[in-house]
Design a protein around this nucleic acid. Sequence first.
DNA 1: ACCCAAAAAGTTACAATGTTGCACGTGCAA
DNA 2: TTGCACGTGCAACATTGTAACTTTTTGGGT
Lengths: 144, 144
Amino acid sequence: MPASTDRLARTLSQHGLRQTPVRRGVLEVLAGAAFALSGSEIEQQLPAGTDRITLYRTLKSFEESGLIHRVIDSSDVVRYAACSIECSAEAHFDNHVHFKCTTCQHIYCLNQVAIPAVTLPAQFQAVSRDYLLAGVCRECQPAG
Amino acid sequence: MPASTDRLARTLSQHGLRQTPVRRGVLEVLAGAAFALSGSEIEQQLPAGTDRITLYRTLKSFEESGLIHRVIDSSDVVRYAACSIECSAEAHFDNHVHFKCTTCQHIYCLNQVAIPAVTLPAQFQAVSRDYLLAGVCRECQPAG
DNA sequence: ACCCAAAAAGTTACAATGTTGCACGTGCAA
DNA sequence: TTGCACGTGCAACATTGTAACTTTTTGGGT
Ligand SMILES: [Mn+2]
Ligand SMILES: [Mn+2]
Ligand SMILES: [Zn+2]
Ligand SMILES: [Zn+2]
């Protein structure tokens, strides 16, 4: 059994999730992704014939368990990315901004860039924040 | 002709859009909304029988013309809100944060709260920003 | 190793949201 | 008043996601 399989198995059990082929596959795809993926994009990277409904249920339980987080966008598809290592079912700690490239359409987690705080009007209490930037990513910059 | 109709007509012509019943209706709904609305929510507030496809096309042209802007969310439905008065087809100037209430589910434009800037890694160039907070809104605060 | 209950997967059917292509109607300017 | 580009209405369709139910698998206990 290769080391990567071992690592995936450990991650699943640490979050109280059972070992199944679909779960190992989904986790492997998202952990290896350089940018956030939609349901259908994940499906394409899984073994052919993987059930779509099972995939959606897997994404839901992964999100609830703190393995992955949603990445907001102004479109009508939901995207997911792997969480930082310390997230759990009790709390997510993904305080980084996201960047959407208008050229390649990829949405990156900029884990080094923290979301700055804002001062809200009285009686608005925030418990979570999402910050999405759009522009041209590193790969898509005009040569110079 | 009431003053409100006149105002709607002026807004449409200022953005180079033709006067039609559907457009006046959609603009009236969004201009009078206290929070961002989805396609189906707008449809419900329009005269019965208004065509859904026409509505979506209207939303698209309104967005392109700078009359409305999308409001990001972590869900799979797109929501819209009226733009500030100075937006146009050339440029949007909606630099405010949005607030999603986890109790009533409404998403408010907080026009007084500007989106703070962030410093990006080299070679990432941002041209637009979206900031969404989630929590409990003014109306849904526990009495106290 | 075997059994079992709970959890996950598979299947079918369905709902919601949004799009495309085409024929027809209308706002608006010449 | 007329022309026609633009907007609308309609039918058909694509995509994304869910609900209800049955079957299979997992993991713990024996
Ligand atoms: Mn992220
Ligand atoms: Mn807004
Ligand atoms: Zn790019
Ligand atoms: Zn509320």
